[in-house]
Design a protein around this nucleic acid. Structure first.
Length: 605
RNA sequence: GGGGGCGUAGCUCAAUUGGUUAGAGUCCCAGACUGUCGAUCUGGUUGUUGCGGGUUCGAGUCCCGUCGCUCCCGCCA
């Protein structure tokens, strides 16, 4: 027994080098792989830091004791560091020049047979990975992602602090807020029939901190929204870098975030990135060109208006749309004239699946025009399309005709799909942009009235003057998004800190002052006691890490994510609770009625 | 709530046009082997083909329903 050694290790599994040859060491870790040659056994011992090869000579006592070496068992080895002979050096390991010749061994944690392999990259069903998340997290890919996440967050904290922001905590048990997503509710024991809500974001708290005079706030804030999942949206909870600044203009917020994002992305990614300031695109222009308020600027495709070319055209389908006040928009795609007919048919099918009645196309090839619709078009109309789109030989143009809103929506799907199918989207750069000038209000077709289009706490750009004198639908807000590669990283706004403007804005949306006082009493009251102009933003941390890690799915950067049905398959949440707990909370469970299966009843009879 | 895709051994996959006893790799078990590093070699176990119906002489394969996972729409101030 070697004396005066640490209980578990003198070195981690990535530390030992040629210089350590001759010293006696102790290392602990997981058995990554075993190569049993009968007379000699090689074990790759793995920990968080790396891998070291342990060699076991058959003359050791423990060699006989051991019935089997199962991978992922945690073991501790004591032994001498020896140099590998030249032919057996492993250049793929940092510790590949040495190995540890074991003299003692202790099993610290036995492993059962694994449901999937840790050491080998193999496809594994997501529900298995989620149930055995602790195993999945040992695998290199996920382990590195979570480590990256930790480092990104540490860097964000350092940078934000360096930029003069203070970090705060805000309540997790908060009040339900009427607008926005569905809340997660927590019943109150002390107040029967009343509920807390988990915050969808610390929105009002951070504004109150500005009213409290703290000047610059940030928080790596957990946010809870009971909404359905997407690839870039984990259900349940997610994290925002929540930011708020006093006496700040939109330009001040942009400058801070550009500084932060440039710093963090460049530190952790080799991908190309635009220098600040990032391009700014007004909301209406983004919708017109890309059919989306989160355009992927790596994709060069855009929509252009060619309504004039079809006004009174012999192509009745489009001419009819124009006559009824609709529009025709075109997407020029370069160098696709040689693509087979199937490419065009498939794109039309795709457009139809996304709500298009149809999609026309024209191909310019070898000085000729090839198209099912060309024969209905005049030379002038063809020339107009060609000129508007800067079409060159070998290009094609796709056409969508409908109500403007419908066309923009379909184009918003067709453009990314064309970009993908034509391989126009490079994967080695980040394209950031700000979407600015969001409308303050929009007309809600369902409710038949004017509603806030985004965030009721945003300041209208023209202040009270706009609210009084402009058509509500023409009022723009100091409201912005930041988008990277087609992913919305964040929304933000310069806030409405003036009570009279707040009351007026809500009045336009059909709510009288009592609604504001009732639902946002805490904040509106604060604004009546001296509130500084302020604004902020809240980039999604999970999405940012996802972009930097180049992962297609947000669950790959979350240690313990829910599945799509908002379940934790490892910890078994949500779960039923005891009757006593329910009684204390004054809660009675009323399950939805079981649907009677008439067929099975008949079969039983 | 709606639409698409997938579902065969613990895991990854195969199985001709509907045709005999559902195969291979990996994992696991046993054995051999003193220099491997995805060790190798020999042998072996593993199945309600997600579940329930139906069509058929015969269903992993076709049809209907259902469940699970996933992607999308709705939803996400």
């Amino acid at each position: 027994m070697v004396k005066n050694m640490h209980r578990y290790r003198t070195h981690n599994c990535a530390q030992l080098r040629k210089e350590d040859v001759g010293s006696t060491v102790k290392i602990s870790g997981w058995i990554h792989s075993v190569r049993d040659h009968g007379g000699v056994i090689f074990i790759d011992l793995r920990d968080h830091f790396g891998i070291t090869q342990v060699v076991i000579d058959p003359q050791q006592d423990f060699y006989q004791e051991l019935e089997r070496w199962r991978v992922e068992t945690v073991a501790c080895f004591t032994g001498e560091v020896v140099a590998r002979i030249e032919e057996t050096v492993n250049n793929r390991l940092a510790t590949g020049e040495i190995e540890v010749a074991a003299t003692e061994m202790e099993i610290l944690g036995e492993a059962n047979v694994l449901p999937f392999q840790v050491a080998k990259e193999e496809q594994t069903p997501e529900h298995m990975r989620l149930k055995y998340r602790f195993l999945d997290l040992r695998r290199e890919r996920l382990h590195n992602n979570i480590l990256l996440r930790s480092q990104v967050i540490a860097e964000i904290r350092a940078k934000m602090t360096n930029m003069g922001f203070q970090e705060f905590q805000t309540p997790i048990l908060a009040a339900s807020s009427p607008e926005g997503a569905r809340d997660y509710l927590v019943p109150s024991r002390l107040h029967p029939g009343k509920f807390y809500a988990l915050p969808q974001a610390p929105q009002q708290f951070k504004q109150l901190l500005m009213v409290a005079g703290f000047d610059r706030y940030f928080q790596i804030a957990p946010c809870f929204r009971d909404e359905d999942a997407r690839a870039d949206r984990s259900p349940g909870e997610f994290y925002q870098l929540d930011v708020e600044m006093s006496f700040a203009t939109q330009d001040d917020v942009f400058a801070s975030m550009e500084d932060l994002l440039t710093h963090v992305v460049k530190k952790f990614s080799d991908k190309k990135m635009d220098e600040a300031p990032f391009v700014r695109i007004p909301y209406r222009e983004a919708m017109f060109k890309y059919g989306s308020d989160k355009p992927d600027l790596r994709n060069p495709l855009q929509m252009i208006d060619v309504t004039a070319a079809f006004d009174g055209s012999d192509f009745k389908a489009f001419a009819g749309v124009v006559k009824k006040g609709g529009v025709v928009r075109a997407i020029k795609v370069p160098n696709v004239a040689d693509r087979p007919r199937k490419f065009y048919d498939d794109m039309i099918k795709f457009a139809q699946e996304n709500g298009a009645k149809g999609m026309a196309y024209i191909i310019w090839k070898d000085g000729e025009v090839k198209s099912p619709i060309a024969k209905f078009m005049s030379d002038d109309a063809l020339a107009l399309c060609k000129k508007t789109g800067n079409v060159e030989d070998g290009d094609a143009m796709f056409f969508l005709a409908d109500k403007e809103k419908t066309v923009m929506n379909i184009g918003g799907h067709v453009i990314p799909e064309l970009g993908k199918r034509c391989d126009l989207i490079s994967n080695d750069e980040f394209k950031f942009c700000w979407i600015v000038d969001f409308p303050m209000f929009e007309f809600d077709e369902e409710a038949g009235k004017v509603e806030f289009s985004h965030n009721p706490f945003s300041m209208p750009q023209g202040g009270m003057d706009d609210l009084i004198n402009k058509d509500p639908l023409d009022i723009l807000a100091w409201q912005y998004d930041i988008v990277c590669n087609g992913i919305e990283l964040s929304s933000g706004a310069i806030r409405n800190h003036r009570p009279e403007i707040m009351y007026k804005a809500f009045e336009i949306a059909g709510y009288d002052a009592s609604v504001v006082d009732d639902k946002f009493g805490g904040m509106i009251n604060a604004f009546k006691h001296g509130a500084p102009p302020h604004g902020g933003i809240a980039p999604g941390v999970d999405r940012l890490v996802m972009l930097i890690a180049d992962e297609p799915n947000i669950r790959e950067v979350i240690a313990f994510p829910f599945n799509q049905q908002a379940q934790d398959l490892m910890m078994n949440a949500p779960s039923e609770v005891g009757l006593k707990q329910l009684e204390e909370l004054h809660i009675e469970v009323v399950l939805p009625p079981e649907e009677e299966d008439e067929d099975s009843e008949e079969q039983n009879a």
